[in-house]
Simulated assay, not measured.
Amino acid sequence: MPTSRRTLAIVATVGLVALGGAAAITAVALAGQGATPPGHGTVIVASELSQATDAASRAAAGTPEQAAAEYLSAQPTAFWLTPEAVPPGDVAKTIGQLAAEARAQSARVAVVVYGLPGRDCGGHSAGGLDEDAYADWTREIGAALREAADVSPIVVLEPDSLALAPECGNVEERVRQLRDAAEALRSDDTSIYVDAGHSQWLPVAEIADLVSRVAAGGGIRGFATNVSNYNATADEIAFAHELAGRLDGMHALIDTSRNGAGSDGEWCNPPGALVGEPGGAIGDDVVDTNLWIKPPGESDGECHGGPPAGAWWPAAAVELTREVRAG
């Protein structure tokens, strides 16, 4: 994720956070047929496929690294579908396991689809598939999610892709790719949110235009904010409301996986970060809820001493969980 502008002062939103239950019930009632949208109290699967689970099994017994990994492995967190980790041909098996775990936990499946051609505009998370392979891969994901309809899948579609597009000079291409991906992924039982950056990135009018162009293709419930970033929840709630006001009733998800200490504007492995509110802690008439979308403990990239983007970083896991483990 590219450098964000400095975080503004925290906005008081205790009332918004507290709304939760009643607002979520209203959203479900309004949804009618089809997918049950996430809401206050939503629980997503904590999967044994996570890097945290693997790290906990490999860490030396009794160490802070093991304690941090064990804590994070137990937290409901979205699973990232990348072609590097879940290539074409492996999708059905992976989503099938996520769905089985979700049923056992009375939870929902939440996945992040992250494999666009030219991903991250050549940045820390560069990669992705070519056009034809990406189309086939997203169709494969869509088919597997339809098989998992009973666990009401939640999809976050291609973090950073829209907000980066103006800088990368590929707006038209990205809009088309995301519309096609949404079409491949859509079903009556899946809630899809296209990524919309965060409160300190593009101006609201600009990102609203980009999201609306993708949403015009259909199949999208709303947008996701703060994915892989650290902005305070209050700032993201205010941003989501402003953005939704330009998008005719679209809804939002907010990533709170690593924003417990707020942000100083640094997006790449900032020192002092903490895990944020657990998923399902908030909800109102615009913000369906918050989730842990970026898995805590995975590096943002080779900055501040971190390993490559997406790799497990034991020191970061220890730092992020220092207060919750101490408590």
Rank of each mutant, 00 (worst) to 15 (best):
I10T: 15
N226T: 13
P308Q: 06
L320Y: 07
A23V: 03
A99S: 12
E323Y: 00
G283E: 00
P278V: 07
G122L: 00
A46E: 09
A107V: 08
P271G: 15
G306K: 03
V109N: 10
E183P: 07
E319P: 03
G265V: 06
V109I: 13
D284V: 07
F79M: 03
V156C: 11
N226C: 13
P166T: 06
R146M: 04
A165H: 02
N290Q: 07
A252H: 11
A316L: 12
V318D: 01
W292V: 00
G118L: 00
H40E: 00
A35S: 13
E323R: 01
E319Y: 01
L247Q: 10
A61Q: 11
P270N: 04
V14P: 08
V175A: 12
R139S: 14
F79D: 05
H40C: 08
D120H: 02
K93P: 01
P203D: 09
E173S: 12
Q51C: 05
L291F: 15
L8W: 12
Q51S: 12
A85C: 03
D180K: 12
G327W: 00
V151P: 04
T13N: 11
Q177R: 14
L157C: 10
W292S: 05
T3Q: 14
D90E: 15
V112E: 02
E70C: 09
G306N: 05
Y134W: 15
T138F: 07
D288T: 07
R108C: 04
S257T: 06
A99Y: 07
G89K: 02
N290H: 10
A55Q: 08
D189C: 04
Q51N: 11
C168K: 01
G222N: 06
A55K: 08
E65C: 12
L210P: 03
P270H: 06
Y71D: 00
V318R: 03
E206Q: 15
A240H: 09
H124N: 10
H304W: 07
Q105N: 09
N226S: 14
Q51D: 12
R179N: 08
D90K: 14
D264L: 02
G217W: 00
W267F: 09
D285W: 10
W201F: 12
T82N: 04
V28K: 15
G142A: 08
P278Y: 07
F79N: 06
S257I: 01
S4Y: 01
A148G: 10
K93D: 13
E277T: 10
G197V: 02
S50H: 06
R139M: 07
P271N: 14
D209E: 12
P159C: 05
V175T: 13
S152T: 14
W201S: 07
P159Q: 05
V45H: 06
A126E: 00
L185H: 11
T190Q: 12
A60Y: 03
R108P: 05
T225W: 05
E172S: 14
G249D: 05
L72I: 04
A104E: 09
D284Y: 05
V211S: 09
A208Q: 03
S47W: 00
E173Q: 13
V17N: 11
E266P: 02
A74H: 14
A99M: 07
A126Y: 00
A92C: 05
L16F: 13
D54W: 14
T289R: 13
A135T: 15
E147P: 04
T256K: 09
T53M: 01
S50F: 02
S263D: 08
E172W: 01
Y230D: 01
T13K: 06
T7C: 10
V11N: 06
